[in-house]
Nucleic acid binder design. Structure first.
Length: 660
DNA sequence: TCTCACTGTCATAAC
DNA sequence: TAGTTATGACAGTGA
């Protein structure tokens, strides 16, 4: 990781210094504002430039977000060219990136910053970096854009740069500074808080990405002209793989090419590049056949799709849409070199098949092909079906310790694709498919190849009906789009048994399709293909289980929603109760206070009033009444008041007083 | 090893 | 009557 950071920083520093030497201003702030990366990739006549902001890269990588075109990247191409030239100079230089930015900023009036960039200033900058780099660390190492139209507003942005962040540096000072930079470059890694580390610390935001990427510096790059390609490869790697790339830093770039050259294609079209993680779209049923459009997420998928689909006519593209199986070719572990041969085999074969088969032809040939395939089904499959058909098919109650567990596991999922070595799981499936079933798959191109990769045993209730987005590009793909054999095993584990069986039976529909298709289509399917009773029962079980699975998911979701709603209702009612209790207490206090004030006022008033005989009126015998017109009258209490606040003996006194 | 959450499946009732 | 939906119950699985 340190090496990668070193190379990354070196490139930026060299580029920056070069530009500063030739008097070109480099606007880091534009990059800071735009969060553009200097690491744009891709070449070619299509100009489908892909910008790769590191912030978005890390955030969106799981979502396969490929960044759209950005016309402002024209700056970056010039920048990149210069960067390549700078890298070609060799001579690694260690220097904080932010200091580089500070160096190259130019403003007409640099009076605000008079301190020359000497070692003291370096220390100051270092301190500034230490104290302020946290707010800028997300941006300070990404892009240096040549921007002659740099505005003062941008320059005046707060940041770790001295004053306005710009100064004019004489050439001799630059030379001196270069020497110091070289010194720092030689010493930076040994210093506890070196400038290099400071620069690197400013890249903490991208540390995960840069932690173990490919070598970036041309100083150790035996193939400087290939730097873009290496960058492309570097950027094409998922974040989680970067830690695994540390050893690659010390390797030759040729090795790197061999390892990850397939990770991304240079000739990827924009449309391919825009493909996101949602790799499937459901095509409306046509002729009783639902089709899946396989979108390739990225990596070699781009290459395969772009290389092949570009040769396909619209009709054949439709054929591709009708052949979800083709996705397995590309989906077979993107970037996994271990499957390169298999990919090539499937790629060529399947796309040849695609070229031969259009959607129309596909539909017409399904029946005949199905009949042929059903005759060629692996006897073990039929045996399994015979022994495990109907509702008791593949009961989940079989535990691993059950005597039938191994039998079931081998018969239900692995045995169909298990090679002689007994390997199980996804890898075995992938490995064994070409040897045992590739012929059948070629014969049955419509068979759902895609689910060899984007299988999911969870029919997302919302997405399953549409078979879009969430069904096949399941979480495993999103989490480990470039995973190795472990990821393959995960995928194999996530491949539902029904999918496996469906595929093993070479039914021209995936389990998802069988479940989602209308009953009319399903019945038509059963009739048209002339399936055996066992196969009919199998398909019905698939449909029943799939629907019940959806129902169970919906049911559980409803239950959870109900529970959640009830909990929220309880919380709401509890809060309401607390509020009402508080209001009641408050009201009681207010009422008591008002009663006391009323009593005081009454006593005061009565103390001032006299009856006809000149005796003072007592509140015990008289009361004040407010009439509707606002008049306040004194009324004689004719009967004892229940609500009186006087002592318990007073009513008796009133009674006594009233009696006379 | 136990617990818990999640999931798939089966059985059954209701529509 | 067949198909679908809803739901309880059970078991497997992984954290």
């Amino acid at each position: 990781m340190q090496n990668v950071k070193k190379y990354f920083t070196e490139g930026l520093i060299q580029f920056t210094i070069l530009l500063s030497l030739i008097g070109v201003r480099v606007d880091v702030d534009s990059y800071l504002n735009g969060s553009y990366s200097p690491l744009e990739i891709s070449d070619g006549p299509s100009s489908a430039y892909i910008q790769t902001p590191f912030h978005s890269l890390r955030d969106n990588w799981d979502g396969y977000s490929v960044h759209p075109k950005c016309p402002e990247l024209d700056y970056f191409f010039a920048c990149r060219r210069l960067l390549d030239e700078v890298r070609a100079l060799g001579s690694p230089i260690r220097f904080p990136t932010q200091l580089s930015a500070w160096l190259v900023h130019q403003v007409p009036d640099s009076s605000e910053f008079r301190e020359p960039p000497n070692s003291t200033s370096n220390s100051n900058v270092s301190a500034g970096l230490l104290s302020e780099s946290t707010g800028e660390e997300a941006n300070d190492t990404e892009l240096l854009a040549v921007d002659e139209s740099h505005t003062a507003a941008q320059l005046s942005e707060p940041g770790p740069y001295p004053s306005t962040g710009a100064c004019e540096i004489p050439n001799e000072e630059v030379e001196e500074l270069k020497g110091r930079i070289q010194e720092y470059g030689d010493e930076g890694r040994e210093e506890p808080v070196s400038l290099t580390q400071l620069a690197l610390s400013s890249t903490l935001e991208h540390e995960g990405l840069l932690s173990s990427g490919a070598p970036l510096s041309s100083s150790e790059d035996p193939h400087p002209p290939d730097i873009d390609q290496h960058w492309s490869q570097f950027l094409s790697l998922p974040i989680y793989e970067f830690d695994d790339l540390d050893p690659l830093v010390s390797q030759q770039l040729s090795d790197l090419d061999a390892d990850i050259s397939s990770a991304i294609s240079q000739d990827v079209s924009l449309r391919d590049a825009m493909v996101t993680g949602s790799v499937y779209d459901m095509i409306p049923p046509r002729g009783g056949v639902r089709t899946l459009v396989a979108r390739q997420p990225r990596g070699p998928l781009f290459r395969l799709v772009s290389a092949n689909s570009s040769n396909l006519s619209p009709g054949t593209t439709t054929g591709l849409a009708a052949l979800p199986n083709a996705a397995v070719v590309n989906g077979t572990r993107n970037g996994s070199s271990s499957h390169g041969a298999l990919e090539g085999c499937l790629d060529e074969a399947v796309f040849d098949q695609i070229n031969l088969l259009g959607l129309d032809g596909c539909l017409e040939t399904m029946d005949a092909q199905l009949l042929g395939i059903l005759q060629g089904i692996d006897p073990r499959v039929l045996e399994d079906l015979d022994s495990d058909s109907g509702l008791s098919l593949e009961s989940s109650s079989r535990g691993p310790d059950s005597p039938s567990a191994s039998e079931v596991s081998s018969s239900s999922s692995s045995s169909f694709f298990e090679d002689e070595g007994g390997a199980t799981g996804y890898s075995s499936e992938v490995d064994s498919l070409p040897s045992k079933s590739i012929a059948n798959y070629h014969t049955w191109s419509p068979v759902d190849f895609s689910e060899s990769v984007w299988h999911d045993h969870s029919y997302s209730s919302a997405a399953f009906s549409q078979l879009s987005a969430t069904t096949f590009p399941h979480k495993a793909i999103k989490e480990e789009p470039f995973s190795d054999e472990d990821g393959e095993d995960d995928e194999a584990r996530e491949l539902s048994r029904d999918e496996l069986r469906t595929r093993a039976l070479h039914v021209p529909f995936s389990a998802a399709e069988i479940v989602s298709m209308p009953v009319e289509e399903f019945l038509e399917l059963l009739e048209v293909h002339g399936l055996s009773p066992t196969q009919v029962a199998f398909l019905r079980d698939i449909r029943r289980r799939g629907k019940n699975k959806l129902a169970a998911q919906n049911c559980r979701k409803r239950k959870l929603d109900a529970i959640t709603g009830l909990q929220e209702e309880v919380e709401r009612l509890q809060a309401q109760r607390s509020r009402l209790l508080r209001e009641r207490q408050h009201t009681a206090k207010a009422l008591g206070a008002a009663g006391q004030r009323m009593e005081h006022l009454s006593r005061d008033i009565f103390s001032r009033l006299r009856d006809g005989s000149g005796r003072p009126l007592t509140p015990e015998r008289y009361t004040l009444q407010c009439e509707a017109n606002g008049r306040v009258v004194v009324q004689h209490i004719r009967r004892p008041s229940v609500a009186t606040t006087t002592a318990g003996g007073k009513p008796d006194k009133r009674k006594k007083e009233k009696k006379p």
